[in-house]
């Protein structure tokens, strides 16, 4: 019987410091298949395992994760360098409902490290070219906390991709927007059938969902990816149970419609 709990070795190909506490790791595993919105279980032997969302798109034949320093596993990962090995298993989770984006306008709203899973989908859609327009609205606490800064120019140059960035608190040399990410919605003209994809800290999601509702986004057009305590990643250990759903196998991607009526769902 195959053992889904056994991870396999991956080598860190490169490490990039995105912000003071976020690093992007490119991993080199032997055949690892994934779709945007899925996550992997990352192990540091002797420390433990943690679910990490994938930030790259499989269309580019690479595997990247962007990790914020949060706990023991992420802490240990941040100590590692190119050439070191980690252990992974997956990819797990339902991933984004790709058919929902075909030929549509898509509004991505990301906060802080919440842009990481969105980036996987953004680059996937860009590569597949099957969309009408992509808006990327991204906010972070300070200019220093913005991730994927190198990619901003790349995105801006692509036809029908529009990027707006804001920070809660600017610095002297910051010339961009200051304010909450939800305010960026006012800067764009959204088609009535546009689909939104939101990811960020709970408080941000709370307000962005309100903003989207006021722009008449129906519950099934508000898509988000959820974070929960997780151990096994395959629907057994019980930790990520939220109401009748398991974030690891039923999610982590849900529409607001999926979650409304779920007893434990709060936004």
């Amino acid at each position: 019987m195959q053992n889904p709990y056994l991870p396999y070795k991956a080598t860190i190909k490169s490490v990039k410091q995105e912000t003071p506490d976020v690093k992007t790791f490119q991993l080199e595993p032997c055949n690892f298949e994934y779709m945007p919105g899925q996550f992997l279980e990352l192990s540091i032997l002797g420390i433990g395992e943690a679910p990490i969302s994938i930030t790259s798109s499989a269309t580019r034949k690479i595997l990247e994760i962007s990790v914020k320093l949060m706990g023991q596993v992420t802490g240990a990962l941040h100590e590692l360098e190119a050439g070191d090995s980690v252990w992974i298993r997956g990819a797990y989770g339902n991933g984004f409902p790709l058919e929902r984006f075909e030929g549509k306008e898509i509004v991505f709203v990301g906060g802080g490290i919440g842009l990481a899973p969105l980036r996987s989908l953004i680059n996937y859609l860009i590569d597949k070219k099957n969309f009408k327009k992509i808006y990327i609205l991204y906010g972070a606490r300070t200019p220093d906390d913005l991730v994927f800064k190198d990619e901003f120019d790349v995105w801006n140059k692509i036809k029908n991709v529009e990027l707006h960035v804001t920070v809660d608190k600017g610095t002297d040399d910051w010339k961009g927007n200051v304010g909450v990410v939800g305010a960026l919605l006012k800067k764009i003209n959204i088609a009535p059938d546009a689909v939104s994809v939101v990811c960020g800290p709970p408080i941000m999601i709370h307000f962005v969902v309100k903003d989207l509702k006021s722009l008449n986004f129906s519950d099934d057009r508000i898509i988000s990816t959820m974070e929960r305590m997780m151990k096994c990643g395959i629907g057994k250990c019980g930790h990520c149970n939220i109401g009748e759903k398991y974030v690891c196998i039923d999610g982590p991607v849900f529409t607001l419609g999926d979650m409304k009526g779920n007893r434990e769902f709060k936004i």
């Binding site: 032997l45 002797g46 420390i47 250990c237 019980g238 930790h239």
Partner: peptide, 16 residues
């Protein structure tokens, strides 16, 4: 059925 998964190792983390 719920369970936790945990690592246990020597201080050096080299074996566990």
């Amino acid at each position: 059925t719920c369970f936790d998964v945990s690592d246990e190792s020597m201080i050096s983390k080299q074996k566990g």
